[in-house]
Design a protein around this nucleic acid. Sequence first.
DNA 1: CTATGTGAAGTGGTTCACAGCT
DNA 2: AGCTGTGAACCACTTCACATAG
Lengths: 221, 221
Amino acid sequence: MKQEKIPDVVVRRLPLYLRAVEDFDRREHAIVSSSQLGEWTGLTPAQVRKDLAFFGEFGKQGIGYNVKFLHEQLREILGLTTDVRVGLVGLGNLGRALLHHNVDARIDGSAVEGDPARWVPESLRIVAAFDVDPQKVGITYAQVPVYHVDEFAAKVRELDLKIVVIAVTPESAGAVASECVKAGVKAILNFAPVKLDVPEDVKVHSADLTLELQSLAFYTR
Amino acid sequence: MKQEKIPDVVVRRLPLYLRAVEDFDRREHAIVSSSQLGEWTGLTPAQVRKDLAFFGEFGKQGIGYNVKFLHEQLREILGLTTDVRVGLVGLGNLGRALLHHNVDARIDGSAVEGDPARWVPESLRIVAAFDVDPQKVGITYAQVPVYHVDEFAAKVRELDLKIVVIAVTPESAGAVASECVKAGVKAILNFAPVKLDVPEDVKVHSADLTLELQSLAFYTR
DNA sequence: CTATGTGAAGTGGTTCACAGCT
DNA sequence: AGCTGTGAACCACTTCACATAG
């Protein structure tokens, strides 16, 4: 292991490994091999090993990886061992659906089979929502308090929001992103169909439905 | 230009170019250069040129690209010049939000500034939804008829659905994907947090909220 | 004999740089 | 002079293959 910069592609695969390991844990495997993880995730065993090697030597040669140990390590690496508090801006249809998703995953949590709670670990949770609509401000939606966007900066600090989900109109998304940057938020999940201009040290992942559909359209001809 | 296989990364950027060109068109530019497109999309001019060169010689040396012509070519390439009919399986919170999104983008369509309709061209539209809940089957939600999943295969053929959006529970997603494959669907947008096993010739794009959030969490430590 | 960790080789996508057209 | 199209150089990630440990 060398503590160099971790490629983004690798970081994007980590949650996949986490999910795989949780599944093996649930199925009571004590040990997993890189081949098994590769099978599960659809990646090559070599890639699994290389990726994990960025962060340490988690396996035993000739044996494989201890499931519980690797699970803990991955949570550690991803920063999921402590609470990661998430804010949501924009309570339109999408924003509300995301809030429902947020609680649903928690409520059916203790349920059997497929156990959705596993997919949204306790540590990663939307704890505050923001909107401009006076009708929405002040209420509690899906167990999450809704504040006016004017309070955004203050609440980011007060609640120590680490990630912000942007689910507003394309026209407002840029302004919201600026607010995030000003407030010191380093990670943004953007659902608005616009490119957000942010400093290098702020990570933006975009979930742009239209872009996805349009590129899929290419493969239908 | 050489009619080789187009890399997936390139295909994923095409909708971005389309969006950029639409914006330049809206702002009444007759010509764009690869630098301008690069600026808009956040890519290098060289990459823009290389990408477009996969499909033909659309520009004029010393001049740039004709906006209207490039727009038309991109729509052609993406297969958006004819209707692309989309089906949605799963009418939970997320599915319903997607349907609203579907109409909203259309209704405010003629509005000014930022013009959301541009982001969801007429040609790409959810025209049928499916669920198992008898309460939902038979109604029309957000102007889209809701059928029972039992009718899925039949409706895919009847309505010529080209893309299917999966917004069901992780437990059912696999089965729905199989149905898609059987019905000949070649493109799937999957919102369920599971890996779908499909043949090579079927494209799956996954929009996995939890994966995105978890990988973002990495950058917050 | 099994499976990790890792240099070395390979692959594929990006950037450079320039010929050629306007 | 300005800008495209493209071979060549470059770079980054992936896969191979093997020394090493159990």
